[in-house]
């Protein structure tokens, strides 16, 4: 599709609650490309947790409340392969035979995962302004297999001249999050995430980036529990920092302090970019 004037942004519950800066950064990236962003405040959750637990009626009630929030025929951008996959591939299943099936299908057809949208629709061109850094990338299973867009994060990182990608072994293997899996089968999940941590640590990367907050919370949380964690960041936040001159310096602290950082006032450029959502197209280049 060609570049739209305006898009919807669906923030996802994990980003809402734990990584809000990633959501802010994602919106800033989109706006900088001259695209206006609408964030329906009534959004909650895509319904995936209940769907994956077998509670379909409960999932559908939530999903139903969400599909009503995106009436305009414009893309819906989601900074998560998992939540995007829920809307794109599972809403059609969840609403099969329901009175609002057509509406669900229509919404599903407009869903883009963030990195997919940046690369395939916006054809974003990034200029790296940051210091040299080595990153390991964790690609989520849902971005890989449900959305088929796992390589877009790599495409974006490849544009950054001072970023060196390091590859952990068994990169495509699941980190063991799996939503409620992590607590329903904690032993298996622990064994998976600890191995994932080992492989990422072995790369000696300065930073871990990914396109899904669930995986990052899992891997980052495990590293943090061990101590001496490699800091982790959502790709949106990382990209914004690398490409926005006035951005805050790279954090050297892991998750626990991460959320505090979001409490700092936004830098001026970011604030301007955000507040002028509807009106500052000309400054947003």
């Amino acid at each position: 599709m060609s570049k739209p004037d305006t898009v919807y942004f669906f923030g996802t519950c994990l980003i809402d609650l734990i990584y809000p800066q990633a959501g802010v950064s994602a919106i800033q990236l989109i706006q900088r490309e001259g695209v206006q962003v609408i964030f329906p405040q009534a959004q909650t959750c895509c319904g995936q947790p209940a769907w994956n637990s077998g509670y379909r009626d409960e999932a559908r009630a939530v999903a139903r409340s969400q599909i009503a929030l995106f009436p305009k025929p414009i893309p819906i951008v989601i900074p998560s392969g998992s939540c995007a996959g829920m809307m794109k591939t599972h809403y059609p299943e969840l609403f099969a035979g329901q009175p609002d099936e057509a509406q669900a299908l229509e919404v599903a057809g407009r869903v883009y995962e963030l990195t997919e949208f940046l690369v395939d629709v916006l054809h974003i061109e990034l200029k790296d302004l940051g210091e040299p850094v080595k990153v390991a990338v964790h690609t989520s299973c849902s971005s890989r297999r449900e959305m088929g867009v796992a390589d877009r994060i790599e495409t974006l990182l490849d544009q950054l001249a001072n970023v060196t990608k390091l590859e952990q072994i068994r990169k495509a293997e699941c980190c063991g999050f799996g939503g409620t899996f992590a607590v329903k089968q904690p032993e298996i999940s622990a064994s998976m995430v600890l191995e994932k941590v080992d492989t990422i640590r072995a790369t000696q990367a300065d930073r871990l980036v990914g396109q899904d907050a669930g995986c990052l919370m899992n891997i980052g949380g495990a590293m943090e529990k061990q101590g001496a964690a490699i800091p982790h960041q959502h790709i949106a936040e990382f990209l914004w920092e690398r490409t926005n001159m006035a951005s805050t310096p790279l954090p050297s602290t892991p998750l626990r302090n991460h959320s505090h950082r979001t409490e700092r006032p936004l830098n001026e450029a970011a604030a301007r970019s955000l507040s002028g959502v509807e009106g500052n197209k000309e400054t947003a280049q």
Binding site: I18, Q21, V37, I38, F39, V183, K225, V277
Partner: peptide
């Protein structure tokens, strides 16, 4: 079950909803 091998996720002090509301991002 989560914190056995992971630190507990820490809630941000302001949600994305709140951040974007403060920043005046369009709601519809």
């Amino acid at each position: 079950a989560w914190t056995n091998v992971r630190s507990a996720p820490k809630l941000a002090e302001k949600t994305l909803h709140e951040r974007l509301k403060d920043l005046g991002v369009a709601d519809e």
